[in-house]
Design a protein around this nucleic acid. Sequence first.
DNA 1: AGAGCCATGTAAGAGGTTACATGATTAG
DNA 2: CTAATCATGTAACCTCTTACATGGCTCT
Lengths: 176, 176
Amino acid sequence: MAIEHAVLGLLAIEPRHGYELAKEFGPDTVVGDIVHLESGMLYAHLKKLERRGWIGSELEPQEARPARKVFSLTPDGEAELQRWLSEPVDKTRDIRLEFLLKLYLAYQSEPERVELLAREQQAQCEQFIESLEAQIGEEEDEFRLLVLEMRLAQNRALAKWLERARTIDSPVGAGI
Amino acid sequence: MAIEHAVLGLLAIEPRHGYELAKEFGPDTVVGDIVHLESGMLYAHLKKLERRGWIGSELEPQEARPARKVFSLTPDGEAELQRWLSEPVDKTRDIRLEFLLKLYLAYQSEPERVELLAREQQAQCEQFIESLEAQIGEEEDEFRLLVLEMRLAQNRALAKWLERARTIDSPVGAGI
DNA sequence: AGAGCCATGTAAGAGGTTACATGATTAG
DNA sequence: CTAATCATGTAACCTCTTACATGGCTCT
């Protein structure tokens, strides 16, 4: 699930407690603009990730406030994050959410990885474009043709955008 | 829910029983290529639509086979279908499913309506493009800019496709 | 005899959405 | 004093996915 991997990705940048993570998914944030997540669901996801052994938690007591539960990646969680990050999404519609999340997380923690990510996704996209062109050549029904043409137009636009995404600069403050 | 409206739309073309509808959503069909629906869920949707009073059913007994339950639109169902058909979808991602369903149903039962449907959706799309362009002008964060540019590219491709969709011919056999 | 079609469904589970629950602290 | 912030969650509900249940008929 993309949201849970996004949680892993944020915890990979630095360990955080639930409330801090919730803000990262809130309004007026990059992640929150890509995918919306209510705080209630976030806590449920954190519980699930902990059960799976991908994250661990440590209680950080405070005076006069509930203790913070600070989550961090386990080695298994790190491995899972790397596995997820390195595979392109296979459906076009997943580019809007899942791929953008991957790209953002890579951009934040390993900017040099962005180019590879975008290049691989672009390759996937162009392969799909070829298959669509082949289908269009054979299609006789007019409505089906229209549907295929929509998909083609969408994927061509995405491929072109991915070409541009490959050249994005490192975030300010990430250093070189 | 788009799927339920698609069921209404198919029943508007002609009354059918569940099994026939299921085939309409099956593999190698126009509707099935747009949205997938397992037969189990279809029966659940039919039950729900009947509870809401949008469709009614009549048992058609057969020799040596379970009786067919033939569904047809009620006046309320007809009104609901017209309401749904006449409003453009407001999120870009809904064009791939919900708008294509509207377009197909109009194409099948009222081909002269297709042009209006596509034109209104195109207007909606172009309005969104303008808003994106304005946001892009003000955005300073590089990653957010990239996200906005993706949305812009997608919507421009869709607007262009919608322009072409307006001119689709009536289906063969639908008469003049 | 076995596969697949006709025709109806139910059941279990996963996941999301929305709202509520708790309770103290700080800012206006 | 009131509202927002901090910080954790739970509960009810809805929807989709996947699989199963039933049982006779037709085609090869």
